[in-house]
Simulated assay, not measured.
Amino acid sequence: MVKRKSGVDDKAPSKDKMDVDGEDSGSDDDELLNVDFEYFDPSPAVDFHGLKTLLRQLFDVDNQLFDLSALTDMILAQPLLGSTVKCEGTESDPYAFLTVLNLHEHRDKPVIQQLTNYLIEKTRSSSLRLESLLGSSSKSQIGLILTERFINMPSQVIPPMYNMLLEEIQWANDEKEPYQFTHYLIISKTFTEVASKLDVEDDRPAKKSKKVANAVGETFYFHPEDEVLEKHALATLRFEYEKQGEEGASDAKRAFQEMGVRPVGRLTLIEREKFEGAVKAVGEYLGSEA
């Protein structure tokens, strides 16, 4: 079933002509590429592989710890909740998605148990102790927000998806469906810069010294809305991935910059009363017209 399809004429910045994976055609002239983005309900018939790819990107090197096929099926099993963004009609692959899963309602499903145990372990020694919220005796209803997009997608596609999610949760609650959340937990991905192994191997002492001095572990955001949402959070946590990338992986991800890029996981916990204000702030910051 197609969502209230908004033909949003977003202007995605690119260099001449940009692919889905963020590579450009090599032109030095900055242009604006007009793209019509359409919002759809998740479609079990066509979206399985696209959503699974985006989930793999979201969880980065730890994606192998979870049954992503089962998680994708769960997203597709609630097609009237959540959105996908496409550029070539409903039969095309999604370039972005956003949805929410009720961790309490699905707590007996193996993939949710995998995720819950992972989250509890990551927060065990931090101020964001999820065990009290996710434990079997907890009365809390945690809505796990999953969202990801391809690297060259404009951030302006995000506010409409959050706004539609608010509406859909309200509609679901009006129908007495299990979406009376007490908290929202957002999994996202940030990164830090690290000294490049390639430059060390090149034996350039001056450059190497500069990199080591600058590698202070500052957090950078892949998606600007994450920084906005954190300002409304009850608690946040930066966590290291369980599986480490192969040696030199940070250099493979350092496109067009001197430092290597090391992805780091991020959890943002927002109380129900603060969530609508957080969504509004995201829209104001990103300036979407939708």
Rank of each mutant, 00 (worst) to 15 (best):
Y118W: 05
R124L: 09
T53P: 03
E23V: 15
E247Q: 12
K139V: 15
E31V: 15
A235Q: 12
Y184R: 02
S25R: 09
L80K: 14
S132G: 08
T192C: 03
V279S: 05
L286Q: 09
V8N: 10
E88C: 13
L76W: 10
F66E: 03
Q113R: 14
L185P: 01
C87M: 14
P44S: 08
F222Y: 15
V200D: 09
P263K: 01
L229R: 06
A96I: 04
S27P: 09
L80Y: 14
C87R: 13
M1G: 11
L55G: 01
D36A: 15
P13A: 02
M259P: 00
R272A: 15
V111L: 08
K52M: 10
A206W: 05
L130T: 01
I75N: 02
V264F: 00
D62R: 01
V2E: 11
D19G: 09
A195Q: 05
L71W: 09
Q156Y: 04
Q78V: 13
K15N: 12
A45Y: 09
A278S: 13
I270C: 02
P178F: 04
K208S: 13
S288C: 10
S127M: 11
A233E: 01
L267Y: 04
E247W: 07
K17I: 14
N34H: 10
L267H: 01
R238T: 00
Q114K: 05
T99R: 03
T90Q: 12
T72S: 12
L130A: 06
I142R: 04
E284K: 15
V261N: 02
T116V: 13
D67F: 03
V261R: 08
K17S: 14
H232R: 03
Q156P: 02
P224D: 07
L234I: 05
E247G: 06
S250F: 00
A278Q: 05
A206D: 11
N34F: 05
M18T: 15
K17M: 07
Q57H: 04
G277D: 12
G82W: 07
Q156H: 11
E218H: 11
K109C: 06
L33Q: 15
K52Q: 13
T90K: 10
Q156D: 09
V200R: 10
V61Y: 04
E88L: 14
L185E: 03
P159M: 01
D21L: 13
Y184C: 01
E31F: 10
K207N: 11
L166K: 05
E225L: 05
K5I: 12
E148M: 14
V35M: 12
A96D: 03
F59E: 00
A235K: 09
K274H: 15
L80D: 14
L68S: 07
G265D: 00
N214G: 03
D47G: 03
G277M: 07
F191V: 00
Y162A: 04
H106I: 14
E218R: 12
N173P: 08
S14K: 06
Q180M: 09
L185V: 05
S69D: 13
D47V: 04
G82R: 07
P178V: 03
V261F: 06
S155G: 05
A281M: 07
G135M: 07
